[in-house]
Amino acid sequence: MQKINIVCPHCGGVNAIPVKESYTKAACGHCKGSLLDTKPLNVTQEKLDRLLLNDERLIIADFWAPWCGPCRSMAPAFEEAARLFPLKAQFIKINTEEEQNLGGRFGIRSIPTVIAFKNNRIVDQFSGALPASQIIAWVKKHL
């Protein structure tokens, strides 16, 4: 059976789980927390690097800032989209005010900017606030 590596959103432990079309339950082998948690994670450079190197899912990163109106208006749509992809994609949020080095590292020129990573590589990105339906369609294109 084919397996995929998943980084636990709770403890950061790496779990190898069987690839399935859908999951009813999946618990971390380290902390026993649910791997089905879809709430976007707030990440630092260290957490992002751990995800990019160890998690084999699609990683969807929202680069945002607290003062950015379009970023705040897109946040509920981003969370809504995240709920539809348990164990298929990991949605993360990167505060560019707190993680300025990541903004520079990925050439972020405007926010919100959303980048899709797969196998530690950028596969696509968009800038500007989108509704949930467009974010969902964009993510499905890359699964």
Rank of each mutant, 00 (worst) to 15 (best):
E97V: 14
E99M: 01
K93Y: 02
N95M: 04
N54I: 08
L130M: 12
K140P: 03
N54A: 02
A75W: 09
L130K: 14
A81F: 07
C68T: 03
E99R: 03
E56Y: 00
P70Y: 03
G12K: 03
L48A: 06
I94E: 04
R121W: 03
N54D: 10
L36T: 01
K88E: 13
A75E: 13
D49W: 01
L41I: 05
R83Y: 06
L35F: 03
G12S: 04
E79M: 10
H142G: 10
F85M: 10
Q100C: 00
K39I: 12
I4G: 06
I111Q: 06
F63L: 05
L130C: 01
I60M: 02
R121P: 03
H142M: 15
S34N: 10
V43D: 08
T96G: 00
R57D: 08
N119W: 00
H30V: 14
A65E: 08
L143M: 15
T24V: 04
I111K: 10
C31M: 05
E99P: 00
Q90I: 14
I17R: 09
C11W: 05
I135K: 00
V139Q: 02
R109E: 13
R105F: 05
L52A: 04
R121Y: 04
R105K: 15
A16V: 05
A82D: 00
F126S: 08
R50I: 12
F117G: 06
S22I: 09
Q134A: 09
T113H: 09
P112V: 08
D62W: 05
K140M: 13
N95L: 03
L130N: 06
F117W: 05
N95F: 03
K32Q: 15
V7E: 10
A77R: 11
A116W: 09
V7A: 13
D62I: 09
S73I: 15
A137M: 08
